[in-house]
């Protein structure tokens, strides 16, 4: 009984992954064919083969890894700070009405300001490299995490609240056994979205200022009209972002219990 029911426990199935990898290769093949046929301008749209060549060269020289590492560390720092802040604030505001009334207006006023709009101020406040980059990432990934977690807490089902009342469950136990597990799927969604925003923000911040990181590498390549290097940078972000997202999905699968995921129609 248990096994059959658990079929949909994981929505990141190995089979799907294998199938999913075919499609990008098909696209690459078509792209290569177009390049070889000479339809596309190789300066604006380099062929996959030349991109691969650029990637190999950038890997060999170590510059790809160097820039990626810098951006990666910035993302990790910013994302962790944002996650911690968002989890603490959303939990406090979700559980204690007073804290909610005190802070909600401020947060909702700050939320619509695009993180990128903070870049000029951030540079003045925290300097052109690490400080301002991490600050922008924190701002960008904080809100999706915060909004999801608070929304998740608010979705705690009334039938369980009533049950806990009837059973005289102490507040602490109620939070640990009812609110937190019920909010976990929202937390994971928040973290996934937040991580996506973190990459967006780091690239945006590095594009606009600084001399390091993958975003800088992209603007530098643009200045030299090295489109193959630009595309290598973009692909690298895609691969790393996907890897980090997969880790979060793995986490979800580990911590969310007694739930079947809807995996769509066959």
């Amino acid at each position: 009984m248990g096994e059959e029911k658990n079929k949909n426990r994981c929505w990141l199935k190995a089979d799907d992954e294998k199938q999913g990898i075919i499609f990008p290769f098909v696209v690459l093949a078509i792209w290569q064919a177009i390049s070889v046929a000479g339809i596309a301008n190789p300066i604006l749209m380099p062929s996959p083969a030349s991109i691969l060549g650029a990637a190999a060269e950038m890997l060999k020289s170590g510059e790809l890894v160097r820039h990626l590492e810098i951006s990666f560390i910035r993302v990790i720092e910013g994302f962790f700070i944002a996650s911690a802040l968002a989890l603490v604030l959303a939990s406090a505001m979700g559980i204690f009405t007073r804290i909610f009334s005190l802070l909600n207006m401020t947060i909702q006023l700050l939320r619509p300001v695009p993180p990128i709009a903070w870049i000029p101020l951030a540079i003045l406040w925290f300097g052109i490299e690490e400080g301002s980059k991490v600050f922008i990432i924190v701002l960008g990934s904080f809100f999706p995490i915060f909004t999801n977690v608070l929304g998740g807490i608010r979705q705690t089902e009334n039938k369980f609240v009533e049950l806990a009342k009837a059973l005289q469950i102490p507040q602490r136990k109620f939070i640990m056994k009812v609110v937190v597990p019920g909010t976990l799927p929202f937390i994971v969604t928040g973290l996934r979205t937040g991580l996506g925003y973190a990459w967006m923000c780091v690239v945006a911040a590095e594009l606009s200022a600084g001399m390091q990181g993958i975003g800088y590498m992209l603007t530098d390549a643009r200045a030299m009209i090295q489109t193959d290097r630009i595309i290598v940078g973009m692909l690298a972000i895609g691969v790393i972002g996907k890897g980090m997202d997969s880790l979060l999905l793995l986490l979800e699968e580990r911590i969310i219990k007694g739930k079947e995921f809807y995996t769509g129609n066959e």
Partner: peptide, 20 residues
């Protein structure tokens, strides 16, 4: 106030889905 003098069973089982 609610107390353990009464046990209550609702129409829906209200089991917490994440607990065994």
């Amino acid at each position: 106030a609610p107390g353990l003098h009464c046990g209550i069973v609702f129409q829906e089982h209200r089991l917490l889905p994440w607990l065994t």
